[in-house]
């Protein structure tokens, strides 16, 4: 029964991706898409999903959409502008180093969201994760502070806030 819930959740995502990738929504695409999504969802249910009930909590989806817009139009733009400024600046003001960034989220997908959000913004790259110590190690183009809690304030606070609401 639980597997069915997981399979339905994964299947829905696969179905949407299948139809978008096929580039058409004719009866042929919808029928084959549903069959493929059902089979794929059933096969990968236990690999991909832990708590299928989260698929039904639509506020998570709302937070996801909000975050997608915010991330691509605010956080990404800010980081790009900052790194561009450093590259074009005659004195190239960089102060690179690796810092420890603690996190408090629980689920793997929330950790992944934070890590990928950090890596995809220019200037910061996650180089390692320590699940027991609940911390990411991040290469930062301009190390302003080294104290872990202050680094978190600078680097990942927003990402973590959204990651918790979407996945935890």
């Amino acid at each position: 029964m639980e597997r069915l819930g997981k399979a339905l959740g994964v299947g829905l995502v696969v179905f949407i991706v299948y139809v978008i990738f096929s580039g058409s929504a004719s009866p042929y695409d919808l029928i084959t898409g549903a069959l493929v999504a059902g089979a794929t969802g059933f096969l990968t249910a236990n690999l991909t999903v832990d708590k299928p009930i989260k698929f039904l909590q639509l506020q998570r989806l709302a937070w996801l959409l909000t975050y997608a817009v915010r991330y691509f139009f605010i956080d990404e733009v800010k980081a790009h502008v900052d790194v561009m400024r450093r590259i074009l600046h005659p004195r190239m003001p960089i102060n690179p180093g690796i810092v420890k960034v603690p996190y408090e989220v629980q689920s793997d997908y929330a950790i992944l969201t934070i890590a990928n959000s950090i890596t995809n913004t220019p200037g910061t790259v996650v180089v390692d994760v320590d699940p027991e110590g609940k911390a990411l190690y991040v290469h930062w183009i301009d190390v302003k502070v080294t104290e872990p809690d202050k680094v978190r304030e600078e680097v990942s606070k927003v990402f973590e806030k959204f990651a918790r609401r979407i996945f935890d």
């Binding site: 696969v14 991706v17 299948y18 493929v36 990968t44 990928n116």
Partner: peptide
């Protein structure tokens, strides 16, 4: 990330 990608890879390749 792989857990998330695996079903999507299968779906796209089936398409």
């Amino acid at each position: 990330a792989t857990k998330l990608l695996v079903p999507l890879i299968i779906g796209v390749s089936a398409s």
